[in-house]
Design a protein around this nucleic acid. Structure first.
Lengths: 116, 116
DNA sequence: CCAACTACCTTTTTATACAAGGTACTGTAT
DNA sequence: ATACAGTACCTTGTATAAAAAGGTAGTTGG
């Protein structure tokens, strides 16, 4: 209501987080076998909100790309869960994303320091 | 053609860069008055590719949001250029994006370190 | 005066995050 | 046994935004 501007700060912040979402998800899965809710909790804890409607299609894409694998596992309370883990390919890709992230950090921090 | 996978590494890397694009553009403009080609060069130099079709609409959005202002300036060789600079509001937003970036770095680096 | 260059901008396509809605299995209380 | 509450999975529709491609116009040099 107050803004007819087509851009707002919260949106820009969200964009920054979204960019690294895939990387973060791979990071979470690399730590241990997890199912969807685990991932959502872990990312919420790291201030990287994700919702189901975002996560499920993304997990499917990563699975189809061969970065992830899953197996069903019974739960003590509720329906069975899909536990995901990284494939060998997934670990390789993650390693490459690590350096992408490091490069991005360097680039941006260089731009930041170039200010008076 | 060669990939039936709906995901590829270069795409993911591009996504990571895209997320912070707006921030980087504001950083570049904060250093000194620049026109579109200056921004493209600066970002290319920092490994953050942008093309015209991305940049012009983004500059318009930032202008409409009141973060930027511009003035026309003659060129020695070619048509006149639009030189952009940050408004007071723009500087304020940039300051907030600085802390967004710092938080993002912390969050992701925490996830990274939590690996064995 | 015409071609090459530079600069600005728009239109179309494609990708993707999110909201919302839907299915199904489990355990608990009536 | 039946119904409902809770959890988990997934899909569909919408909006945003980057990128590709195409378009307009001013300037310089031949």
């Amino acid at each position: 209501m107050s803004l007819d501007h087509s851009l707002n700060l919260e949106n820009t912040r969200a964009q920054m987080r979204k960019g690294s979402l895939e990387y973060c998800i791979l990071l979470v899965i690399s730590r241990k076998k997890v199912y969807a809710s685990d991932i959502i909790s872990a990312l919420k804890h790291a201030d990287m909100l994700v919702v189901e409607g975002t996560l499920y299609p993304l997990l499917s894409r990563l699975k189809n790309a061969g970065l992830l694998d899953y197996h069903w596992q019974e739960s003590k309370s509720g329906p069975p869960r899909k536990y995901y883990e990284l494939t060998l390919l997934g670990r390789g890709v993650l390693k490459q994303l690590d350096s992408t992230w490091e490069n991005l950090q360097s680039s941006i921090n260089a731009l930041r320091e170039a200010r008076r």
